[in-house]
Design a protein around this nucleic acid. Structure first.
Lengths: 183, 183
DNA sequence: CCCTAGATATACATACCGGTATAACTAGCT
DNA sequence: AGCTAGTTATACCGGTATGTATATCTAGGG
């Protein structure tokens, strides 16, 4: 699997942006390379010259989306210094994130569902994202079990919102976290 | 979309059982009708004569799995009469369920990820399953927000376990539920 | 001036998938 | 005895997917 370190060409940027929308909204399996190329105003050859394979493009999509998400959370956290407020801010960030996105759940969870082979790199990427959030919590609450419980609330809010149709899931998860945190 | 009400023929039962394993472990998109027929010791014609289409077979798979899951939970709940104990028993049931299953998450969530069209019947089936659990909680705790929070913990435990690699996720969700429940 | 990287355009190879068609065999019910 | 439902066996259709091949164009840097 090729890894892209060099800066992306303009065409590659367009491909990645288009793939980001299509993969997330329609699902990885329902979007072909032909469609991505066409929507990006590019030929299939260019897509393969830049990314090498569909798997590599999928991984690039997940990594860029993950980066956007982490930056988003980090920025909303930076406003607070009190650990308790920082924890609660992650749930407010989730609420705001969900308000601007189609109700399609977690891209990492979805990708793992579509590519079930555990040796596929998307599983590593997904585990890393979840570990990042868990470690963020662990740095704020000291108690490891509590950190896991906060992660559970966070992931549960995403599923309850996107599949379960629960209104204000993130806010309710925030309230639950508030009750769990020591005072 | 055809609906099966008549009792299944022996061949149809085998098909459904095989499809259950393959769809869950390898993902719906990665399993073709040809493979299902072969593994069930049946021809493709029989599969289509019994189920009509792949979509209908997917739905039958989800419904039977859902029924198995609800029966499992209901049985573990029946031992207790105290509402608080009954709530906590749902998390113990999840823990036992996960112990006997491959770490592949929720079949409903996975199906929604693989078939993103919201008008596809799997989305209704998934929403119904989550609503069933939420209503179960709502009948035990009276407070609607708390019922939603318990659902969030439940769903979060599944994702944290299967994608996040969190050990004892169900037990930790149970402990969190225990802390949230009024005493 | 020319070489290279990035791009276009188009056709193609290969493989698989969902679904259909046809014909024949078997067991049970009437 | 004969009809029907369920089944086997096999071949096929049309569509689509990933990925490759070939040839051409363009712009920038040495």
């Amino acid at each position: 699997m090729r890894v892209q370190n060099r800066p992306l060409t303009p065409a590659a940027r367009r491909v990645l942006q288009v793939a980001g929308h299509l993969f997330y909204e329609r699902g990885i399996g329902c979007v072909g390379m032909e469609l991505i190329a066409a929507e990006a105003g590019v030929t299939k050859k260019t897509v393969y010259d830049r990314f090498g394979s569909k798997d590599a493009l999928i991984l690039a999509y997940l990594r860029t989306r993950d980066e956007r998400w982490r930056d988003f959370v980090t920025a909303r956290l930076a406003v607070f210094s009190d650990p308790r407020e920082r924890v609660l801010a992650t749930f407010e960030a989730l609420e705001q994130w969900q308000a601007d996105e189609p109700r399609r759940g977690c891209s990492m969870v979805n990708a793992c569902a579509e590519l079930p082979d555990p040796s596929h790199p998307v599983h590593r990427a997904a585990a890393e994202q979840k570990a990042w959030l868990r470690d963020l919590y662990a740095g704020l609450v000291a108690d490891g079990t509590l950190a896991d419980q906060l992660l559970i609330l966070h992931e549960g809010a995403i599923v309850a919102f996107s599949v379960g149709g629960v209104a204000d899931a993130a806010a309710k998860a925030r309230a639950a976290a508030d009750a769990l945190l020591p005072r």
